[in-house]
Design a protein around this nucleic acid. Structure first.
Lengths: 124, 124
DNA sequence: CTAAAAGTAGTAATCATTACTACTTTTTAC
DNA sequence: GTAAAAAGTAGTAATGATTACTACTTTTAG
């Protein structure tokens, strides 16, 4: 079977055993406890391939870093522009504008991105 | 009045006169036609302050660059993982999962981020 | 078992973004 | 209007996340 390595498995495990949205560096720090001499490049490569294969999600909030999420169920990400926290919210997407009353969060703007293949790239 | 400069005005203009989602560098290239010796740092600084003041939106799709959007009305961003295109869609957010039939786009995953202030930062 | 394929560690390079400094424009107070 | 303070800018250097590269190790397929 392709795509096996204990590094890849440890990275996926690390991500599924935590409920936050770590960056590549944070995943690296965590996995190091299991595989002390793992390389940061290996973490980046495997995270990218796990996103590609749909096993994890990539969350871009605009802080210059890519964050990763092991929870693939649909939920909103509340991003605090002050402290940088990323908070999960189970509010349905059609309620985005009325989100204020939930989670003690004051929303200002929201951006939704759907990932996939456009018409042209589909043909190829 | 604070916050005035012809550079800032030209940057806002550039963004509102195009219907795509340019990066800071692309905005820089465009504004250069009006103000040839504008500095890239000035573009970054003003884009950040325009986002801060809510005059434009920042769109992070996870390609390592920050994109900007002069259209503040709510709409989805369809991001093609193959060619990198960012396509606007007027599909309502509660229809995200049924988006396939629109726009000739094949969706795989979607991530929504709401920007604002969390409970703790609200208090300060 | 053994050669090809895939994956890895470690390091160097890339590139978007930010920081910094000396200079210019705008604002404010008289 | 004018002069000092405040805000903004150009240009360059620095930072930091991510990617590329190379020699080496592990896994897979026959």
């Amino acid at each position: 079977m392709a795509n096996y390595s204990k590094q890849r498995e440890a990275i996926l495990n690390e991500l599924q055993n935590r409920c936050d949205h770590p960056t590549a560096t944070q995943v690296y720090e965590g996995v190091k406890k299991v595989i002390p001499n793992i390389s940061l490049g290996t973490v980046y490569r495997n995270l990218a391939s796990l996103v590609e294969s749909g096993e994890i999600l990539s969350v871009a909030v605009g802080d210059g870093k890519e964050h990763f999420d092991g929870d693939k169920s649909f939920h909103l990400h509340l991003h605090c522009k002050c402290c940088g926290a990323i908070i999960d919210s189970r509010v349905q997407p059609d309620k985005i504008k009325g989100i204020a009353q939930f989670d003690g969060f004051t929303p200002e703007t929201s951006v939704c991105v759907v990932y996939g293949l456009c018409k042209n790239c589909n043909k190829q």
